[in-house]
């Protein structure tokens, strides 16, 4: 049997079903008939179990993201720009100097990758220095 051949119980497209119903009438019902009271009981049990695991996981991730943002804002309220090491709201030579000192000392500095290339190296210092002297609107 070819692998791409559809199985017999697979439904035809909606348009084709409509055409077939017009030509041959409605198909006979298949499967086991379920009484309505059993269906109600099953629905009640499903509702009692609460939301699905996927929904619960999504809510937890969203809550964690909100908490992370709030914690970051509490730790450095003035750090508005990437590379604003001292958190005074502007990127200047003081930030560049501190970044260079941190790089030379070899300390693990999580905010040092200012050019977002995955590494904390001299390129970050050069990037920040260029940003500090960049001419904006006067």
């Amino acid at each position: 049997m070819p692998r791409d051949r559809k199985s017999s119980n697979q439904l035809a497209p909606i348009g084709l079903q409509r055409d077939l119903r017009e030509a041959y009438g409605a198909p006979p019902s298949r499967g086991v008939a379920v009484p309505s009271d059993l269906l109600e009981t099953a629905r009640a049990k499903a509702g009692a179990r609460g939301p699905s695991p996927v929904r619960l996981w999504t809510r937890r991730v969203a809550l964690a993201a909100v908490l992370a943002v709030l914690m970051f804002r509490q730790q450095s309220p003035g750090a508005l720009h990437a590379g604003d090491i001292d958190g005074n709201g502007v990127v200047d030579i003081a930030d560049v100097h501190r970044l260079a000192l941190a790089l030379r000392s070899g300390e693990l500095y999580f905010g040092g990758d200012v050019n977002r290339d995955g590494y904390f190296d001299e390129d970050d210092v050069r990037y920040l220095l260029a940003a500090a002297v960049r001419l904006g609107p006067s």
Binding site: V96, A100, V133, S138
Partner: peptide, 17 residues
């Protein structure tokens, strides 16, 4: 260090460390 655009403006920001 400075922005090369300073040659076209009347303003320059100089920095060195």
């Amino acid at each position: 260090t400075f922005d090369a655009a300073a040659f076209l403006h009347h303003r320059v920001i100089l920095a060195s460390f």
